[in-house]
Design a protein around this nucleic acid. Sequence first.
DNA 1: TGTCCGTATGTAATCGATTACATCGCGGAG
DNA 2: CTCCGCGATGTAATCGATTACATACGGACA
Lengths: 335, 335
Amino acid sequence: MSTIKEVAQSAGVSVATVSRVINKDPAVRPATRDKVMNAIAQLSYTPNLLGRHLRQTRTNKILVLIPSISNQFYSKIIRAMEKVSEEQGYDVLVCMTHNDPRAERRYIDMLVTRVVDGIVFFSSSLSAAQMDELASGFPVVQCSEYIEGSNTDMVVIDDEKAAYDAVSWLLRRGHKRVAYMGSQVRYSSGIRRERGYRKAVTEAGGKADERFVFLDDYSYPGGGRMAGKYLECGSDRPSAIFCISDSMAIGCINRLISEGVDVPGKVSVMGFDDTSIAKVFCPAITTVSQPQSEIGRLAAELLIDRIRNGVHKASGGKLRKIILPHDLVIRNTTI
Amino acid sequence: MSTIKEVAQSAGVSVATVSRVINKDPAVRPATRDKVMNAIAQLSYTPNLLGRHLRQTRTNKILVLIPSISNQFYSKIIRAMEKVSEEQGYDVLVCMTHNDPRAERRYIDMLVTRVVDGIVFFSSSLSAAQMDELASGFPVVQCSEYIEGSNTDMVVIDDEKAAYDAVSWLLRRGHKRVAYMGSQVRYSSGIRRERGYRKAVTEAGGKADERFVFLDDYSYPGGGRMAGKYLECGSDRPSAIFCISDSMAIGCINRLISEGVDVPGKVSVMGFDDTSIAKVFCPAITTVSQPQSEIGRLAAELLIDRIRNGVHKASGGKLRKIILPHDLVIRNTTI
DNA sequence: TGTCCGTATGTAATCGATTACATCGCGGAG
DNA sequence: CTCCGCGATGTAATCGATTACATACGGACA
């Protein structure tokens, strides 16, 4: 690989001039520019960004940290982030933590060691203090998930209220009891949704029956397994199930149907996220939708603002916690 | 942010010594090491990797380029890559091209400008010549998809044969005709699968009826839309459908069922990839499985080998094209 | 013609690390 | 007692770029 020095030599100018040409400095004579451009083409030279970034102390890249790409939910959000980022001249990198704190640490290091300019967190295993400390030195935004007690910019929905609304709706529709299917990994959103679930149940005069609070993972198979447990409960089981993801709901519904239990005839099932399959699935899934594009757009904007204006000065130093509205989408898996 | 120089000053040693401590050079006295460690902790110093990488000319990061994370197929493959990479001390970054050549170019620049050490391509919009040129200077592996006529390391399955096997199986089971549902975006794997489809149909004495070759996108809704077109074909439509992805198959099946068409009673539907939902879905989906973990593992190994041993010297300079076996997984959407 | 000024380019410091080589002090061998 | 070698540390070059500052040149003006 050729360097700026070789180009300079080959063009018969100094490295400074080559750098000027690369950076489109108007103060270089057309004739010189041409010479340099030729040399660049000749040697098929591309600047080493490490050198540039080292000098400029910025990289124009942002990192998005998610647990896993196998969860469809992130797809639309990240797409929106990419749109904003592209407009603003930033590249978006995605890394997966698989809820492994060590992996997370390695990727956070990319920020701390200045390989990227900022991070969007979807769930983190940091403590509130650690997160706050990171955010005090680097541009950081929490998205969808957030660490309880932490103070950073964030874009979220009111998960507790969303779950409360969903479960309340089921109860109002005449279901006496509602089962809960959540995540074993205690994502903050999961905790809040469970809280909303319990609140709705309690307020309706019942109390949450621990036999009907199931935990597994976010996947289709996870939903299937929980449906299995649910079926083992015998005939006094609830007539409605609130799942905290669409994948769970689908895994669950398929299991129920294959065991001959009619959905929604015998059991109503509700999902969460309104991912692309929810509308297409048969029966179409009743679910809680989040404004995914809006979430992604805002998160990217907040982050880039912090990057551009400095961690402490952006938005006058004030934190921004944006809570976006959720929405109940009634389809055909509930009566 | 503090630098190595500040740490040196604060510890009362030279930068060289600090660097030695960071890099665990055994030749530094325990007492000095402690002084330095203290200073590091005091200043909460973290090395700037740009500086290090600039000197070392490697970054220990590999980039995985995929069209979009909304396709579940990549999930398990990338997971396997992450495992290998972690063992070998590499970080995995994922970027999405959305089939936009400009976006792809920007991410390839991360390789050319030495921000990452190598790239795994899942589909690319480069020409064969461009890909070959890139591969002649940088570590590159093509995975699942590959550009026809290009010469790089690659890990793939025999898509043509896989589709041929799948469709032949349907024909042998007594289906007189088989419809094809593929991707509008002409991924190389799609082209080869279509070729395999046509070959099977032709060999069985028929010829592919263009009315029954549908193209849309890989998504659930795409499958639904094609099912709509299929239904419009009236009563002389084929009794089996071969889809080139599980999502398509699911979207398709759901649409068929909701229109009262029994699957597999009236129509058999076959998917591709054996993603996690295929087994769980009801009815469970007959599909073509690819050894995803194996694909990911091998692709990462090939790439890291090229990175470690140099583009031209790795594997004695020979290209490695690994073709892995596929497998027909018979479940309940076909008779 | 001499001074001044602006334009185009070169020189060299700099970013933050690594690392080849130099240096220093100390203990053991002769 | 001197010299050698080795272990521990420092000095300075280096990676590949950017950029502040210096300089050379040429033209305008008095």
